[in-house]
Simulated assay, not measured.
Amino acid sequence: MSDRYLQLDKLTLAYGDTVAVKDLDLAIAKGELVALLGPSGCGKTTTMRSIAGLLGPASGRITLDGDDITRVSANKRNVGLVFQSYALFPHLTVYENVAFGLRLKGIGGKDLDAKVSAGIRSVDLSKFVDRKPAELSGGQQQRVALARSMVMEPKVLLLDEPLSNLDARLRLEMRAELQRVQKETGVTMIFVTHDQIEALALADRIVVMLNGGIEQIGTPEEIYNKPVSAFVADFVGFENVFALENGKLATSNSLVDLSGPAPQAAKGLAWRPRMVILGSGPFQGTVRGTSFAGDTREYLLDTPLGAIKAEVDAELPAHAIGATLAFDLPLAAAAPLSRYR
């Protein structure tokens, strides 16, 4: 397997005078399922549009399977694209929607039928070949769009926010469907999302983006457990994030001693709400807000450190708004950050 099947070298992308992505370097292996994750405006969709050939770079290079495709037109790149809106033809049946691109390539007869039927079977829609998009659920429409791209046998398949239009139950089903199709076909797949849960559940690797650059690349486990910056930590649920100065926590108005020596070279420390110990510890805070979340109860504390978010088992006694509580930020549970900004 080539670990540089798709490669972006010093890619800079702009809309007029506004630079959206600057000097981006990224290598993706053949057969990988990669998520571009980040908030709106971070450059992830712009990067995907450039890979698809819908946006030419200001500078830099894109290579795919050894070929330079930087200036190759979109229809000659052999890159598939599934839009957020699915972009199905409302007047065509499932069969005809899936067949559309193949017909444009001049494929017909038995070859066409074999490819279309195989594509429809791969997304489990054989019973719906004669239906039109309006007669399908959102999840079924998503699968038609996926099959339409897959039958073209793309070298890379790009998906723009593929699950954002689905309800929670269908989202879970389509996650499994995307993983199954990707693993069975071996297609290299890149999907854009702002949903960290979706990225963690689906991807082999996650590329976290911010302000047109890459903040961190890693496996879901690495991103979730070992964020390298304050932004990534907060984005994946470490809601209590502090800078370190001289081995102490830096708050808005003071430096606070830790219970032990700070990790070497760390620029910051981060704790998930679940890591905060309530009821004992060297710090005190006042309950400003509380919410019941099924198995857990969440608290927002006003403290000399700033706002602290804590999460405990719901079966524990509840604390009222206005209550004063002791708490601790255990050093052993903290994620050390190599960057704080």
Rank of each mutant, 00 (worst) to 15 (best):
L6A: 00
T93I: 11
A335G: 04
L125R: 10
Q182I: 09
L337R: 05
L112W: 02
H91A: 07
K105T: 01
E153R: 14
K115G: 01
G101P: 03
G247F: 07
I214F: 04
M275P: 03
R169W: 05
F238P: 00
A334I: 05
P162Q: 13
V232Y: 08
T286K: 15
M189A: 15
Y15F: 10
A199H: 09
F283Q: 12
D204V: 04
P57S: 01
G60I: 03
N211W: 02
A293I: 15
H194T: 08
E184C: 08
L55P: 08
K76P: 05
A58I: 06
E177L: 11
L178G: 10
P154S: 01
N225G: 14
L54R: 06
T324R: 14
R148G: 08
D65Y: 07
D328T: 09
L102Y: 02
L325M: 13
R131P: 03
L136P: 10
K132H: 10
A262G: 07
A314V: 11
A233T: 00
R180W: 03
R121K: 09
Y15S: 06
L337Y: 14
Q179A: 13
A114N: 12
V208C: 01
K309V: 10
T296V: 11
T193I: 13
Q182N: 12
E184F: 00
A333Y: 10
L255G: 01
P220N: 04
L301I: 15
G119I: 12
A20W: 04
R274Y: 08
M209D: 01
Y15G: 02
E135R: 15
P263I: 00
L104E: 04
A333R: 13
R297C: 14
R77F: 01
T251P: 03
S229M: 11
D25T: 13
R131M: 02
W271Y: 11
D25W: 02
V156R: 12
L11V: 02
V232I: 02
G294I: 02
D130C: 06
Q141K: 09
Y340K: 09
G31F: 00
L316V: 03
D167F: 05
L125M: 09
M189H: 10
A176D: 09
I206S: 05
